[in-house]
Amino acid sequence: MNATLDTAAAFAAAEPEKNLIVTEALKKAYGYGQLILDGVDLAVNEGEAVALIGANGSGKSTLLKCLIGLHPITAGAVSTFGIRFEGTPKTREKAKIRRQVGFVFQNHGLVRRLSALSNVVQGRLGQPGGLRAVHQAIAPAEWREAAFQALDEVGLADKAGARADQLSGGQAQRVAIARALTRRPRLIIADEPAASLDPAAGHEVMALFRRLAKESGITLIFTSHDMEHARDYSDRVIALKNGCIHFDRRSKDVRDGALEEVFRD
């Protein structure tokens, strides 16, 4: 059930041909029965940058994972890239969806003992023949070059040979962004990408995300606890409260009072 459906949501819903993601009364409960998502309806258009905000436990991360079938849905349906599924997508559908997605986690999720370049090459692992992307040493030249280019785009060309565990938090997150970008996905999902970074590195990472996604026409959905990030680096802010959409507005229309309300019990 959606508390406030206003301009942004109405705009997305009015152009169904542009919808990249649609959820229909999406519900998600975990083993103990409590609903984490309680009837979420939303539509995200191709090329949009959407910030998901909400308190801890509001269902932001769960929603992201449900969109690509990482978590099974309890009720309702999701349509991602036009592939509609209930419960869990079939293996082939799952592969088709995830092949077009770049995912960035809060703690970067890099393989610590591999070089930055190998980690970025691994962004191709979901592709057909992707097994050659396990390490840069055996990757096809074209993939290796694209990975290096992605590292260059995030300003870390000089760190291509450095092991992931030797990078700072901000650098590691930029490598994770390069990994998400290397095969130019249609959608990048980022779960609190700046949460483990200091404020300066956080802004740097978010600005980079926004710029690269915009330049490449990639749809971006990210979660954040930082209101500044949510407003500054998105076109649209969706607030979740108690598993429901509390509001869904253009970023420029979101006022401080509305944000405070989201985090109030």
Binding site: R98, V101, G109, L110, Q127, G130, L131
Partner: peptide, 18 residues
């Protein structure tokens, strides 16, 4: 890292080696 690779469609075999 396993979850990150699973999210982009890597197979179990790729996750093992990657």
């Amino acid at each position: 890292p396993q979850e990150a690779l699973e999210a982009i469609g890597a197979s179990r075999f790729s996750i093992l080696f990657g």
